[in-house]
């Protein structure tokens, strides 16, 4: 599976450097760093599109990879980007805090991060089976619409305390943990559906 992850990384890194530039720019802007986490959830869509265009998906089927590995690699790639953005986001916020640009405390801001990461994970959980089922080309409109819709819902619920550099959601810790649990269960279900779709697409 390392080969698949490396292929995705090399492809996306060479093909769409602009993605990473955008992610970095968003991470550096305190009120916009959460966009970067969402962009992480959209990168697998782009990787899928490139796979379809180059025909890599056909090649992968004759290589020593199981269906599970092919499916898992796409999820893991998405998780790494979402997680990487979130961690980098926290580090940058701490740096701002250390440089006395903006105060930041993860103890206060963790709720916001959990909600953002969970929302991005939900985007992954919904998009992946759709891509494994019908491909990116046919479902581009749905994938874009769904991802933007989730971003808008989250964006409208978020209130930024720029003076503290934190993101606030007016939700209790219990609700936030429930959202985390639901998004994790969704991942499990999504992976299983994607595996079925991938195998079904073996004509």
């Amino acid at each position: 599976m390392k080969g698949l992850l490396l292929k995705d990384w090399l492809t996306i890194q060479k093909q769409t450097k602009i993605y990473f530039v955008m992610m970095l720019v968003f991470l550096l802007i305190p009120s916009m760093f959460w966009y970067s986490i969402f962009l992480g959830s959209l990168v697998p869509v782009t990787v899928f599109a490139y796979d379809e265009r180059s025909g890599w998906d056909k090649l992968a089927r004759v290589m020593p990879y199981t269906s599970k590995e092919v499916v898992a690699s796409k999820y893991i790639f998405g998780y790494l980007l979402i997680g990487g953005s979130a961690i980098l986001g926290v580090i940058i916020q701490y740096l701002y805090s250390a440089l006395r640009i903006l105060p930041f405390s993860l103890q206060d801001g963790w709720r916001g991060y959990v909600i953002l990461v969970c929302s991005a994970l939900i985007v992954v959980a919904v998009n992946m089976p759709v891509m494994f089922w019908l491909g990116v080309e046919k479902m581009r409109i749905f994938l874009t619409f769904f991802s933007v819709a989730v971003m808008m819902i989250v964006g409208s619920s978020v209130s930024f305390e720029l003076e503290y550099g934190n993101i606030n959601f007016s939700l209790s810790s219990g609700v936030i943990l429930a959202v985390l649990g639901i998004s994790l269960v969704l991942q499990f279900i999504s992976v299983k559906i994607s595996e079925i779709c991938y195998r079904h697409n073996m004509k």
Partner: peptide, 15 residues
């Protein structure tokens, strides 16, 4: 069917 942005060195790393 290799991704078009890759080169022989990348193909080696993946394989």
């Amino acid at each position: 069917y290799f991704p078009e942005v890759l080169n022989a060195v990348n193909v080696n790393s993946i394989m």
